[in-house]
Design a protein around this nucleic acid. Sequence first.
DNA 1: GCTAATCATTACTTTTTAGTCAAGATTAGC
DNA 2: GCTAATCTTGACTAAAAAGTAATGATTAGC
Lengths: 159, 159
Amino acid sequence: MKISAQEEYGLRCLVQLANLADGETLTLPQIAELEGISAANAGKLMWLLNKAGFVHSTRGTKGGYFLARPADEIYLNEIIKVLDEDVLSSHCDSYTGVMEKCVHTGDCGIRPVIVGLHEIVENALSRITLASLVGNESKVDAMFHQIQGLHRTLEPQRV
Amino acid sequence: MKISAQEEYGLRCLVQLANLADGETLTLPQIAELEGISAANAGKLMWLLNKAGFVHSTRGTKGGYFLARPADEIYLNEIIKVLDEDVLSSHCDSYTGVMEKCVHTGDCGIRPVIVGLHEIVENALSRITLASLVGNESKVDAMFHQIQGLHRTLEPQRV
DNA sequence: GCTAATCATTACTTTTTAGTCAAGATTAGC
DNA sequence: GCTAATCTTGACTAAAAAGTAATGATTAGC
Ligand code: FES
Ligand code: FES
């Protein structure tokens, strides 16, 4: 259960756009610079996010990317769904081993674990907006711990 | 955010072992048959699980695999940690783009999201034993929704 | 119109993950 | 001891994901 590169960087690029003042845009080289990835890679990510309708772009000189909607109306679960190809809906078709479908007939204890995990993650992400991720680490941290129902204070540190 | 093949199949193989009566064992071809994967693949998975101490094995005729501990003392978070290479502890070292470490200095809104998601998943998995996954789909499903429900009821609490 | 800056799209290469194979080691039963 | 069934292990191959490159399209400013 881990975050893919596409989810990670895609999300980070969106946070950069959410950081902009109204009317400002970022070019691919700028995004690449800000996130420490190559411009080509940034281009691919932004292409995906554009197709999915999260950002708009203008071409030509003075062109660039900007959010298609206000950052406080974009929830993380929508973003992750696009960047992650939404694999859940076909779980029993994708991990089939050498068979066509998974071998479990009827009663299966695995399926609800997989589905349940995705529900829990979805549930958490659907409460967080892109806007709330902008430059406020301790705030985001507090929000997550509130969701979990845990009252721990985690010092911000690189992990 | 998705389950890897290793997590999925490894967990499924363990559930098969948890299903055995006391003293029984399963051979690689049997496990492979039950889960619809190749014997070679089952062999690799069981090797991992053996190294990690979840199963024991006996070689030779009449050999096979069995759980090293009672299934109701094995929690899913331990299993997943082994099958998933525990990537969390080095998040900012692994998604570094073209840099050595991630570019964010100080205040970062992404890090707590990643860490928080892993905490939520870990938290859910640490409450479920291998034993509870054996052949009772609706029970497992109910358990997961109870965990989610728990989060919901805790959230509105004021401090 | 021309040019430079920019996004768009597809094809390609590299890296990582998944899965297979083959040779070796161990054991029960004869 | 011999044999057949079994696990063990490292090397190999295949598939998927990640990342790069190259070419084409659009636009602002001159
Ligand atoms: S995982 Fe698909 S039915 Fe068990
Ligand atoms: S993701 Fe590592 S500091 Fe932002």
